[in-house]
């Protein structure tokens, strides 16, 4: 009867609240953003009062670099949207492959999904960076593959695998009576899937899919490790251009965190809203 209970305050020790795709639930609160903004403002102004008067105040430095940093952040968003788009398309196909009646297609889809879902994102990114050629020759055409494109492909791999699981999971979560009712009305399998099953799955898939997007957005900074000039790379460059002043570290990095917060927070709110809305309806 008495199961051992883990008493801990450390979040990492607690069992994860599994979403549909088994990912961690996303729990941003407004004070997270205020906290980050606070650090950014305080450290960029307060630090200045004791700083060397010869150096420019951190706040000014940050303002000076801000346009570049925002540009870099835009690049992160472009990477995230593109990787999400590609990953969703391919992942949806893969998810449908996982429920195919064709045993081989099913097995291969399952394997590909599991493989990419259980590999660290950074490894997949490196995998794409170093295994893809710098250009593709198709027929007479040469398509260049710049680093940022490879980064998009690399990040779309884990997205693909997670979307595949979201699709498979949503389909499996529908009561089998839906299939039986549809089949006994003589619908073809394709009709059952597209007209009856998938439309019902969309609302089940939306929250985990948006969750995945938030995680992906935050993972775009991994692209800095492979040299894509996104916001982290640019921050690093900005800081070294300022002679590696340590009093700039906190203002800069808390500013970056804040940028991610103001982008991800509305998404997280909306996800929670959708989750609640759909939970009531079905």
């Amino acid at each position: 009867m008495n199961k051992p209970e883990y008493k801990t305050d450390l979040p990492v020790m607690l069992p994860p609240k599994a979403g549909v795709n088994g990912s961690f639930d996303f729990n941003l609160k407004p004070w997270h953003g205020l906290f980050l903004l606070g650090i950014c403002v305080l450290t960029s102004t307060a630090a200045y009062t004791q700083a060397d008067p010869v150096k420019a105040p951190p706040f000014e430095v940050l303002l000076r670099w801000m346009p570049l940093l925002l540009k870099g952040f835009m690049f992160n968003l472009i990477i995230s949207v593109s990787a999400m788009g590609i990953g969703t398309l391919v992942g949806a196909a893969l998810g449908l492959g996982q429920i195919s009646l064709h045993p081989w297609l099913r097995k291969v889809s399952w394997f590909v999904t599991q493989f990419f879902r259980n590999s660290p994102w950074l490894v997949l990114l490196f995998f794409a960076m170093f295994l893809l050629p710098f250009e593709l020759k198709i027929g007479g055409y040469t398509i260049p593959l710049p680093d940022w494109l490879k980064a998009i492909i690399g990040l779309s791999l884990p997205v693909m695998a997670n979307v595949s699981e979201i699709v498979r999971g949503a389909i499996a979560s529908l009561p089998s009576g839906q299939w039986e009712a549809a089949e006994s009305l003589a619908f073809t399998r394709t009709q059952v899937l597209w007209r009856i099953i998938l439309p019902q799955c969309v609302k089940r898939m939306l929250p985990p899919w948006m969750n995945l997007y938030s995680i992906l957005t935050m993972a775009t900074v991994l692209a800095s490790i492979v040299g894509v000039s996104e916001v982290m790379t640019l921050t690093g460059q900005a800081l070294s251009a300022e002679d590696g002043r340590t009093d700039l570290l906190l203002p800069f990095y808390s500013f970056i965190l804040f940028l991610f917060f103001i982008y991800c927070y509305p998404i997280a709110r909306w996800t929670v809203y959708l989750e609640q809305k759909f939970a009531v309806k079905t």
Partner: peptide, 27 residues
């Protein structure tokens, strides 16, 4: 052969009329 189930198994994303019309239209 028509079949009716214990759990109704209506398609929840379609109205009553659409539920009835779907199969004659599509099948």
């Amino acid at each position: 052969v028509g079949m009716v189930f214990q759990q109704y198994n209506l398609f929840p994303h379609k109205t009553a009329l659409e539920n009835i019309m779907m199969a004659p239209l599509l099948v």
